[in-house]
């Protein structure tokens, strides 16, 4: 591997005329960008952690919120997001295989694997749109926001009791009194959320939205590089480093999803 021989002594390495970090300018700048971008995501996830612990009792359990799966009836917690994670891991593999093909100057290989990566990215974006749609749309029964702002859902099908976030149930006269000032809400947006505190919805839209924007721009950049591969730009240049650079970005997007998956859906 060129630029990677550890035999170069420090004096030569840091003496000028060569990159002391052993990478090209473009690749280093991509890494710098990813480092700062990752810190942005750390900020978001830490903020999420703060609010979550701050409102521990009122925080909805993600498993009970995202339970839909296309063409299947009933509750299927985690299944859909597991599928999304699988799609993103798959497209990460195809990307790294494209990079590997580039190292062998195998243009056909790069074309095949990059095309599959783009398809994987598009499927992921579609999945996210579907999930957002269901979250915004909400459940059939919806929930009630009581006068003090607490969100309560029906405890049973017969609608004789409302379940409060602290586990107790409102029944009989208490229920009738509470219902006079309660408002019915369905689904979630930036101000109300039928599953619990509105902050949960805010963070959901913001973090998965920010990640989705990254996936979207990743697909776009992948597509531009893909067109260049088809045109033979990198063949003429003598190397496929551009594929490697977008590859870094794409893996970063997958990396962020690994953390979002854990902290938003699992924990």
């Amino acid at each position: 591997m060129a630029g990677h021989s550890p035999s170069i002594d420090r004096k030569t390495l840091w003496g000028g005329g060569t990159s002391p970090l052993g990478v090209s300018y473009g690749k280093m700048m991509m890494w710098f960008f990813l480092v700062s971008d990752a810190l942005t995501f750390s900020g978001f996830l830490v903020a999420y952690g703060f609010m979550r612990h701050r409102f521990e009792e009122a925080w909805p359990v993600a498993e009970e919120v995202f339970t839909h799966f296309p063409f299947l009836h009933g509750d299927h917690p985690l299944l859909y997001v597991a599928l999304m994670t699988f799609i993103l891991i798959m497209s990460s593999v195809t990307m790294v295989l494209a990079v590997e093909s580039g190292h062998r100057m195998n243009r056909k290989g790069v074309i095949l694997w990059m095309a599959l990566t783009i398809v994987g990215g598009l499927i992921f974006l579609g999945s996210q749109a579907w999930e957002w749609y269901h979250f915004i749309h909400g459940t059939e029964a919806g929930a009630y926001q009581l006068a003090d702002g607490t969100i309560a859902q029906w405890a049973n099908e017969a609608m004789t009791a409302l379940k409060l976030p602290n586990g107790t149930e409102l029944m009989g006269a208490d229920l009738a009194a509470a219902m006079e000032t309660a408002t019915h809400i369905q689904g979630a947006n930036l101000t109300v959320n039928e599953y619990g505190v509105p902050l949960f919805a805010d963070f959901f839209f913001f973090i998965t939205g920010f990640h989705g924007t990254h996936v979207f721009s990743g697909v776009l950049i992948n597509f531009i590089v893909f067109v260049n591969v088809l045109k033979g730009t990198y063949e003429k240049r003598g190397h496929y480093e551009m594929v490697e650079k977008v590859g870094l970005y794409w893996h970063f997007v997958d990396l962020v999803w690994v953390f979002v998956f854990t902290f938003f859906y699992l924990i």
Binding site: G3, T18, G22, S24, Y25, G238, H239, E241, E244
Partner: peptide, 18 residues
């Protein structure tokens, strides 16, 4: 000067990497 730092590998190394 990107070309100086670009990594290339042979068919055999590629097999290992895959």
């Amino acid at each position: 000067r990107t070309a100086e730092y670009v990594q290339h590998h042979t068919e055999e190394e590629g097999k290992k990497q895959r």
